[in-house]
Design a protein around this nucleic acid. Structure first.
Length: 214
DNA sequence: CTCCCGATAT
DNA sequence: ATATCAGGAG
């Protein structure tokens, strides 16, 4: 909806984020779009540290779309169990790869419409893949981007998809990919859910939360 | 809205 | 003990 936060302030925030996190990219270890897709499915409600720990072994055993499409569910479940939601994730990963094989010639789709039609892939996961594997601009609204956007005052919405569109309206398209990574990094480093370190925050003078809370 | 779910920080 | 971690589907 209507962005109440002035353009002037947005410019300053983007500038500080770029300066504070100059070369951020996804923390999910991957070598190709397939590995990123699987890592991102696994990352739901799980730390990227654990995902990387699991995928190191997983990707040494299963390498191709065919491998994942043909794996036995109990085997896959056991390999990813520690990431939580492991039954849903295993089922979705396998079904995803079967669809990619059948409907997309074994290639991970490079557009939003096709990606969100795959089982277990919503706009957040799709935007991660589009941005980091194909360089296609999108804003990743995960738990961090949601929380920070609300705290800073970018949005008053609660639905991640509405937040995504609020952010797209407020932020230049060329900044979407880096902005997502910078917000996620900032959420992990300082603007944490439980005990945000507002006094140390480079955005403290531009934020509605913490020190400046009403 | 609820359910899926293990691991870790607080 | 409980909130939270790069969510998505029914």
């Amino acid at each position: 909806m209507a962005q109440k936060i002035p353009q002037e302030r947005i410019k300053k925030i983007l500038k500080i984020l770029r300066r504070t996190y100059p070369n951020v990219k996804t923390a999910l270890h991957h070598r190709n779009p397939l590995e990123l897709l699987i890592s991102t499915i696994l990352s739901a409600q799980c730390t990227d540290k654990r995902v990387n720990q699991v995928t190191e072994t997983l990707f040494s055993k299963l390498r191709t779309v065919r491998d994942f499409a043909g794996v036995s569910l109990p085997d896959l479940e056991e390999m990813i169990r520690s990431t939580g939601f492991y039954r849903n994730k295993a089922k979705n990963i396998k079904a995803c790869c079967r669809d990619i094989l059948k409907k997309h010639g074994g290639k991970v789709p490079d557009n939003m419409e096709a990606l969100v039609r795959l089982p277990g892939i919503g706009r957040k996961t799709a935007n991660v893949i589009l941005g980091s594997s194909f360089g296609i601009p999108g804003i990743v609204v995960d738990t961090h981007v949601k929380r920070l956007s609300q705290r800073i005052g970018f949005t008053t919405e609660k639905d991640p998809i509405k937040i995504e569109f609020d952010l797209m309206a407020a932020i230049p398209k060329k900044d979407w990919i880096d902005f997502s990574h910078q917000m996620i990094q900032h959420g992990r480093a300082l603007c944490t859910a439980r005990k945000p370190r507002c006094p140390e925050c480079p955005l403290r003078d531009l934020c509605d939360y913490g020190c400046n809370a009403a």
